[in-house]
Design a protein around this nucleic acid. Structure first.
Lengths: 116, 116
DNA sequence: TTTGACTTGACCTGTTTTTAGCAAATGTAA
DNA sequence: TTACATTTGCTAAAAACAGGTCAAGTCAAA
């Protein structure tokens, strides 16, 4: 089912961070120092009441020694899921999104209209 | 394939608005007046260089006489697709998002932890 | 009970992103 | 040319977001 490089099923981005941090036996404070965020923020991020900053994805991937692509996908999958939930999208929203994404891939890209 | 109430395949939210506006034979200015946005913004929205404001989805649904759910799904599907494209998510991101969304549905909701 | 790790609330601030108005420019059809 | 529709550059204002501080908690293990 999983293709190479594809992301394994994961609960949420916060849980992902927590799991990886604990694997490395870092406290929230240690991890926070490495990535440049204070302890309370780390706690909130892991528990889902604060978002991880998009601009720190690169640092996170090198800190965890993982592919940026994998981190990115996980990050956005979580972002989209939360948003869909928050704004009461129907279950089909991601299927529609995939169609729309294909539309953008097929038209915009070829025309060089990358300005989204 | 399409369930009742499900959104028909659509190119982009901008094109959707343009199509529906033209069906009703409204100029961008007329439409803008009805929804409360000026002409330039309508133009940019239809052409995809500006986002339609989330806070106006309700007005849009009544203006077009369509279900809010349908409009909402279309709006967010487009939003997600653009974002995924912009930040170079892999093609599997929406599949992952769907898993994550299920995770949130099964845990957060039951616990009343609706604060996303 | 002391200590370290973690959680949470309230509040504040700087930054980035996005919106949308105006005016000018560009179609476009009669 | 005239008239109307649409598009676009510039810009101020608004909204969203990230992260910080500080203080007050909980919790588990030594």
């Amino acid at each position: 089912m999983l293709k190479t490089g594809q992301v394994k099923k994961m609960a949420s981005f916060g849980k992902f961070i927590k799991t990886e941090r604990e694997k490395r036996e870092w406290t929230q404070t240690e991890f926070g120092t490495k990535i440049g965020i204070n302890t309370s923020a780390i706690s909130r991020i892991e528990n889902g009441s604060q978002k991880f900053s998009r601009s720190k994805l690169k640092e996170l991937s090198s800190l965890f020694g993982m592919e940026l692509q994998q981190i990115t996908d996980l990050f956005f999958a979580d972002k989209f899921a939360r948003e869909a939930f928050k704004y009461k999208c129907s279950e089909s929203v991601f299927a529609v999104a995939e169609d729309t994404a294909n539309y953008y891939r097929n038209t915009k890209v070829k025309q060089g209209k990358l300005e989204l």
